[in-house]
Design a protein around this nucleic acid. Structure first.
Lengths: 225, 225
DNA sequence: AACGCGCGTCAGGGGCGCGTGAAGAAACGC
DNA sequence: GCGTTTCTTCACGCGCCCCTGACGCGCGTT
């Protein structure tokens, strides 16, 4: 059964969503604020998160980034504001879809189905090949074609894992910094340059001309398989 | 069947629209003034509203806001006045498209189709085709028919994403400027011309004659799928 | 015709982001 | 306590992105 975590601070909306989703055969858990949402997400391991941006304690974008730091569970954002600025910010932070209130319940369910369908038949990757190296994300080892192994520091692993788990996808600097160093480090882009350089030195055949760990100027980085 | 509410105070235009839309398999309801329109919208729950701005009782913008208070049903505005001031006001209030009278019936139907197609219970778009290019908004990649990739700067992405996420819909200059550069840049329409030209150079087969990134003089820009 | 206005196009320059190297500060091992 | 590894900080040069100004064109107004 598909497990859904609903995060909203309005009791009646929470209740309406719970009833409607349970009637459609979803397992539903609810949270009323951002901190509870982040905690429950760790315990409940939902297949999908429905997140209201207007929470009492945390900013919605911070909740998204808090989740994106360790999981790429699909996130559907609810918001009372239709402003495209908010929408873009949420999507940039890692949301998968955006629904403005007031919304039609059938539409929301349709989007939930669409998002879970898309994320459904995925196997969580364990081994990724980066050039001549074979990286095992589960037991944290990297072995070369000649059988030699590579040593990576914890920070390097954290950064590399985020990129490798989203092959081909652009990960914004903000996302990387909040995930690896925390939300208060979003300005320290030089950390990224520093550690991306180290990863390239260790993994790329020609560190000056990376073929797999690519820079997207002004935006972020991307792992190209 | 798609349900359309037509709001206009001219009986002959009302009649013409009803006949034409019914012939094209729309379910049509009509209202002759703003109050009737707001009441009927609540009862009829249309999938689309065609709204004449020149109503006897209420100002057109007030009708739009009255609808937007509880629903985000697509609204296409009709107006006899070609003044850009009215257009922009209507679009800012939440209208989805704008047609000046006298209008071509086929054009109106085409816009109705475009707007309803977009708002249907479809999954949120990730990949959009623009001419020969395939643009992935999630991965931030653009690949051509020959497999080549395209590089876009952050500002170009921001602008393009806004247009591509609202296919067929007219986005006002004000909206684009506030979303990409911030609210204090609403006068800098020069930026738009600059970056729209760059996007056309990169995406359009014939940048001088754009087929997908269209200019609506005095109002804004539109992405035509 | 002259003028203003909006749009498209081109060229140039300043500033910022990126890559790189190096060194100090902190944490960890024994 | 000492050496090593890891994290953080600083400095420097280069390339490119963003902004700016200019001009031409079409269109409607005076």
């Amino acid at each position: 059964m598909t497990r859904v975590l609903v995060v909203d601070d309005e009791p009646q909306l929470l209740r309406a969503l719970r009833i409607n989703l349970r009637a459609r055969d979803f397992a539903v858990e609810v949270a009323a604020d951002g901190t509870a949402a982040l905690r429950l997400a760790g315990d409940f391991h939902p297949d999908l998160v429905v997140l209201d941006l207007g929470l009492p304690d945390l900013d919605g974008v911070d909740v998204i980034q808090g989740l994106r730091g360790w999981t790429n569970v699909p996130i559907i954002v609810l918001s009372g504001r239709a402003g495209s600025r908010d929408k873009v910010e949420a999507l940039e932070a890692g949301a998968d879809d955006y629904v403005t209130k007031p919304f039609n319940m059938d539409e929301l369910v349709a989007r939930i189905r669409a998002v879970t369908r898309r994320a459904g038949p995925e196997e969580s990757v364990r081994v990724v090949t980066v050039g001549a190296w074979s990286v095992d994300l589960a037991d944290k080892t990297a072995t070369g074609a000649d059988g030699g192994t590579l040593r990576l520091t914890p920070t390097e692993w954290h950064l590399l894992e985020l990129l490798l788990r989203n092959p081909g996808k652009l990960i914004s600097q903000r996302q990387l910094l909040t995930a690896v160093w925390g939300p208060s480090y979003v300005k320290e882009t030089h950390y990224l340059r520093q550690y991306m350089a180290q990863l390239r030195r260790k993994l790329e055949a020609d560190p000056a001309r990376p073929r797999h760990l690519l820079t997207e100027p002004g935006m972020g980085y991307r792992f190209q398989p």
